[in-house]
Every structure is written in structure tokens, then in C-alpha cells.
Computed example of a mutant assay.
Amino acid sequence: MDKRERAERAKQEEAAMNRVLIWIGGSVVLEALLLLLNRYYVNYQVKDIEIAMALRNVFSVLAVVLPVCFLGCLAWWVTSWKKGSRRVMPQVLTTIAGVLAACALIVHFYDKTGVKALYVGVPCLAVLALIYYLYQREFFVMSLMSGAGLLGLWLLNRRLAHPMEVYGYLAVEILFLVAVAVTSHLLQERNGVFQRGDKRMVLLPKDANYTMLYATCLVVALIQVIGLVMGPMMLLYGVLIVWLLAMAVYYTVKLM
């Protein structure tokens, strides 16, 4: 590797680290806002009832406004991408609007439970961003599948209270796993390259480990089926977490 290549690689690593720091900083800000929300919206005192009611009205509005803003930013991003432009602003605004819209919808529809879920969800989002920018892409996909599996197990504890929502999520999760398996097979045949017309995108590197992708799909699917039949036992959480940690060790070694 010559001096020019080393400089280019260092520049890319610095850019990736800056993005990770932005995500971590954003998650810290969101966690701070959630603490305030917990104080004045969830565990409010009698003297704070007016503030709690005002926040409830605000989230009723944000649950509509923020998703519309997200769709507008997404359309801008897609349009600029089709034109060949690689401007950062549409991507940044779409990401911010998407995260805020998801938070607003969760708080609006799930109230106290939603706020508690966001306590865990926001740090997990920061960890996923770290994996996306610093690790191989196939490990990022495995982390998404494992995270979806853990969320599915958590939701199974609430299927008696919200059966339609829980079973709806599980159906979407299975479709996601199938989509990952099918897409992985197609990419394996094409050396990780997706091509449409003149546009060519390298989605996975040539040395991507597709066996691990298929194995993760199978493990997560089996865990969900067992949890559905026998209940979300703590052992199932442990299996998924151990599997994810094993993958983290494997891909950390590959980075060295």
C-alpha cells in the first residue's frame, strides 16, 4: 500500500468515525430528552398535570407532522440520488426526520410503554450506526436480524394484551428474514454486486461470508418459532445475545 492509498484510507476511516460520533452525540441528546419526557409526561406530579396534557397534545401533532416531513425529505433524497448527486444534506435531514418521526409515533401510540422502549431503542440505534460504519456490511445485517429477534421475544410477553400488533410484527419479521436470505443468495451469485441498467452498486464485498448470513437467518427464525410455541424464555434471549457476541468477535478479528 503506497502513501496515497494510506492517506485515502485514513481519510475514509476519519469520516466514518466522525459519523459514528455524530450518531452517539445524537443518541445522548435523545436520551436526555427522554429523561425529561419521563419526568413530565410519564411520572409527572400533580402540579405538572398541565405540562403533561400539553405534551400529550404536542405529540398528537408531531405524530402527523414528523412523518410527513420524513416522506418529504425521503423524496428529496431519492430524487437527488437518481440525478447522480451525492449531497449530504438530503441524507442527513431524512435520517433526522425518520428518527424523530419514529420516536413521536411510538410515544403517541404506546405512551408510557413507548417511552420505556425508547430508553433501550435509542442506544441500540447508536450501536447499529457504529457497526454500519466500522464493521463489514454483512455483520450489520446480522445485527439487524438479531435485534429484530430480540424485539420479537420482548413483544411476545405482551401478546395477550396486544395480539394483533405482536403477530403482525412477527409476520413482518419473518418476511424480513426471507428477504435477507433471498437477497443474500442473489448477491452471492453476483459477487455482492447489484446492477440495474448502467448503475452498479457493490452491496457486499467479494469475501463476504454468506454462510454466516444464512445461519443467522436460521437461528433468529428458530428462536422466534420456539418463543411463539413455548414462550419467550430467558434462555432464548441468551442464545441470541451469545450468537451476536460470537459474530462480533469473528468480525472484529477479520478487521485486524
Rank of each mutant, 00 (worst) to 15 (best):
V253N: 08
S60H: 10
V58S: 05
A129V: 08
K11M: 09
P90G: 05
V242H: 01
L255D: 03
F109W: 14
C103Q: 11
Y44G: 10
G25M: 10
D207Y: 03
S146Q: 08
T211M: 05
I174Q: 10
Y167L: 13
E13N: 10
P163N: 08
I106K: 11
E14I: 04
R39I: 01
E189S: 13
Y132P: 00
L34E: 07
F59R: 09
A10L: 10
R196Y: 09
P123W: 01
V182R: 09
A10F: 02
G168P: 08
L160N: 13
L130P: 02
T252G: 14
A102G: 08
C69Y: 04
R196E: 07
V239I: 15
R9I: 05
P67T: 03
R86P: 02
Q195M: 12
W81R: 15
T183I: 02
V68N: 00
R159L: 02
L55Q: 05
R190W: 01
F59M: 09
K206F: 03
P67I: 02
V88H: 06
F70H: 07
N38E: 11
V229E: 08
Y210K: 11
L244T: 13
F176W: 08
G149P: 14
L228F: 03
D198I: 03
C103H: 02
V46A: 12
V88E: 13
V253W: 06
Y41V: 09
Y110V: 01
L118K: 12
G121R: 11
P232S: 09
A54T: 09
P67E: 05
A52P: 04
I131D: 14
L170I: 06
L155D: 05
L151T: 14
R39Y: 05
A117F: 05
L35Q: 05
M201S: 07
R200F: 01
V65A: 13
W76R: 14
V253D: 05
A246R: 07
A75H: 01
L236G: 06
A126D: 10
V115M: 09
W77K: 15
M89P: 00
V249L: 11
W77I: 00
M247I: 00
D111S: 11
R19V: 01
Q45S: 08
L33E: 12
A102E: 06
L105T: 12
V242L: 14
K199P: 00
Q188P: 00
C124V: 14
N157E: 14
L33K: 04
R200N: 10
I51H: 01
I241S: 07
K11R: 15
K206C: 00
V172D: 06
F176P: 00
A181T: 08
Y44S: 10
V92A: 12
V46S: 11
V229S: 06
L130A: 11
L213P: 05
L228S: 13
P205E: 09
M256E: 13
C69M: 14
Y167T: 06
T95A: 14
V65H: 02
V78T: 04
M1W: 03
L177D: 04
A181R: 14
H185F: 07
L155S: 08
L177S: 04
P163F: 01
Y40P: 13
A215P: 00
C69G: 05
R137E: 06
K254Q: 15
Q195C: 08
V99H: 03
L240T: 07
R56P: 00
F194R: 11
V220I: 13
E50S: 04
